[in-house]
C-alpha cells in the first residue's frame, strides 16, 4: 500500500513542461478503480491534502509522506452496494462523500472520522433514484431524483459530523436533470443540464427555477461542468460525449456557451478540441477554473485552457495501459490521472 517514489518525466510533443509527474500511488488491494479525488484532512493538529481512491467495494484515504510517497490511513468497506463515484465537497475538511448504486445512483453516503468515539464512520445522507449529485460550497449537497411521476431537486446542508441538517427543495423542471454546476461570480445561482439538452438556472436561496434554455441540437447529451456569470451573460462549460466531428471545430470535447438568461438565446464562444493529428472522443473529464481535463477514447488524457480553447497538454496512455480517470485536485496546479488497476499519478500542471 505504500506509494512508489517520484519519477519525473517529460512528455512528448505539446506536453513538454506543462505536466510533470510528481508522485504515484498504487492501491494494491484495488480490483477496479472507479474514482479518485482529494480531500483536506486534519489529524493531530496538522491539515494535509489527502488523496481518496475508490473501487467498487471500498474507499481509501491516503496521506502524503515526506518522501513524496503516500500512506494509506484508512479504508472504508462498502460491500452491499457498489461505489459509483466520489462527490467532492469544496471547502470541507475530514469529510468524503460518495455515490453508490448499480446502474444508477441509489444512495449517497458520507465517510468521516468521529473524534467522539475515535473511529472512522459512514452515514447515509439520502436514497432514491438519484440522477445527479454535486457538492456545493458551504458544505451543501444538491441532488436530483426521479420517481415515475415526479422529479425532486434537493439541497441538503451537512454538519461537521456529517449528519444532514434541514434541506431545501428547488423547483424541478419537467425534464430530468442529469448534471449540476455552481456559478462563479453569482453565489446564489445554480445551473443544471437536462436529458433534452436544456440548461436550467435556479436561485439557490429561494428555490425558484429562473430560466430554461436550450443548448441546440448539434451537441446532444451536453453535460454542464462549470458556469461563470459576467457582463450580464452566463457562460456555461459543457462537455459533449456524443458530439459529431465537424470541419470547422474538429471534435470538441468541451465548449463554452454564452447564454443571455433574459432572452434564453445562446451562442458558442470557444470550442476545445484536440489538436490536428490527434484523435479520440471525450469519455469523461473534470473542469476547475478555466482548466479542463478529459480522458479520451484513445486512452490518453488531454488538458485545455478553456479561455483560449487550446489543448495545453496531452498525456499518452501509460506503459501499463490506458488512462481511465482524470480529476483536478483542489487547485488546477495538480492533476490526478488514474488507471483501472488502481494506479494514480499526480502531475504538476
Amino acid at each position: 500500500g505504500v506509494a512508489e517514489q517520484l519519477t519525473p518525466v517529460l512528455l512528448d510533443g505539446l506536453t513538454e513542461e506543462s505536466l510533470q509527474l510528481v508522485s504515484k500511488l498504487k492501491d494494491s488491494s484495488s480490483s477496479c478503480a472507479v474514482d479518485v479525488s482529494t480531500v483536506w484532512w486534519e489529524a493531530a493538529g496538522s491539515k494535509e491534502l489527502c488523496v481518496v481512491t475508490a473501487c467498487e467495494s471500498s474507499v481509501s484515504l491516503w496521506k502524503p509522506l515526506a518522501s513524496n510517497g503516500w500512506e494509506k490511513i484508512y479504508t472504508w468497506q462498502l460491500r452491499e452496494v457498489p461505489v459509483i463515484q466520489i462527490v467532492p465537497l469544496p471547502d470541507t475538511c475530514n469529510l468524503v462523500c460518495i455515490a453508490l448504486g448499480d446502474l444508477e445512483i441509489g444512495e449517497i453516503r458520507l465517510l468521516l472520522y468521529s473524534s467522539e468515539n475515535d473511529s472512522f464512520k459512514q452515514s447515509l445522507v439520502r436514497t432514491g433514484n438519484i440522477k445527479a449529485v454535486l457538492g456545493l460550497k458551504d458544505r451543501r449537497l444538491v441532488s436530483s431524483s426521479r420517481t415515475v411521476c415526479e422529479q425532486q431537486v434537493e439541497v441538503v446542508s451537512l454538519s461537521e459530523t456529517g449528519r444532514s441538517r434541514d434541506g431545501r427543495t428547488l423547483m424541478p423542471p419537467e425534464e430530468t436533470v442529469l448534471a449540476f454546476a455552481e456559478v462563479e461570480g453569482l453565489q446564489d445561482a445554480l445551473v443544471g443540464t437536462t436529458a433534452v439538452n436544456g440548461v436550467v438556472v435556479w436561485n439557490l436561496r429561494t428555490g425558484q427555477l429562473l430560466k430554461k434554455m436550450h443548448v441546440g441540437y448539434s451537441y446532444p447529451a451536453s453535460v454542464c461542468h462549470q458556469a461563470y456569470s459576467d457582463s450580464g451573460l452566463l457562460f456555461v462549460v459543457l462537455s459533449h460525449p456524443h458530439a459529431k466531428e465537424s470541419e470547422s471545430c474538429g471534435n470538441p470535447a468541451f465548449r463554452v456557451v454564452a447564454f443571455n438568461p433574459k432572452t434564453a438565446r445562446s451562442t458558442g464562444v470557444i470550442f476545445s478540441s484536440l489538436p490536428a493529428g490527434h484523435t479520440g472522443r471525450y469519455l469523461e473529464g473534470d473542469v476547475k477554473d478555466a482548466c479542463a481535463a478529459a480522458v479520451l477514447t484513445s486512452g490518453a488524457v488531454a488538458v485545455w485552457d478553456l479561455l483560449l480553447g487550446r489543448c495545453t497538454a496531452l498525456l499518452p496512455p501509460g506503459p501499463q495501459g490506458d488512462w481511465a480517470l482524470v480529476r483536478w485536485a483542489t487547485t488546477t496546479a495538480c492533476l490526478l490521472a488514474g488507471q483501472r488497476n488502481g494506479t494514480v499519478c499526480l502531475y504538476q500542471y
Binding site: 423547483m171 453569482l186 446564489d188 445561482a189 438556472v201 436561485n203 429561494t206 428555490g207 425558484q208 427555477l209 429562473l210 430560466k211 456569470s229 457582463s231 450580464g232 451573460l233 452566463l234 454564452a258 447564454f259 443571455n260 438568461p261 433574459k262 432572452t263 438565446r265 445562446s266 451562442t267 464562444v269
Partner: peptide
Amino acid sequence: CSESDLGPISLNWFEELSAEAPS
C-alpha cells in the same frame, strides 16, 4: 458575441428573473 445575437443584455438578470419567476 454581439448583443444582436443574444438580444438585450441586463447586468442584473439574476435579480430581475428572481423577481419575475414563480416562488
